[in-house]
Amino acid sequence: MEFITAKEAALKWGITPRRVQALCAEGRISGAWRLGNAWAIPVNSEKPRDERTMNKDTIDDRGEDV
Rank of each mutant, 00 (worst) to 15 (best):
P17W: 01
T53H: 00
T53I: 14
I15M: 12
A25V: 02
A22G: 10
L35Y: 11
A38K: 09
S30W: 06
I15P: 12
K47A: 09
A40N: 11
S30Y: 09
R28F: 03
P17I: 06
T53S: 02
Q21T: 15
A40D: 03
I29W: 01
A32W: 01
S45Y: 01
A25F: 03
T16G: 09
V43E: 11
L35V: 14
L35M: 14
I29N: 01
Q21V: 15
V20I: 07
N55C: 11
P17E: 02
D50F: 02
G27L: 09
V20C: 05
Q21C: 15
T58K: 06
I15Q: 01
R34L: 15
S45P: 06
W39N: 04
E26V: 06
A22P: 06
A22W: 07
R28V: 11
D50S: 13
W39Y: 04
T58S: 08
M54S: 12
R34G: 04
N37F: 13
G27K: 09
R52W: 01
P42A: 04
G31T: 11
L35R: 15
S45T: 12
V20Q: 03
A25I: 04
A22E: 14
K47Q: 08
L35K: 15
D57T: 02
E51V: 11
E51W: 00
T53G: 02
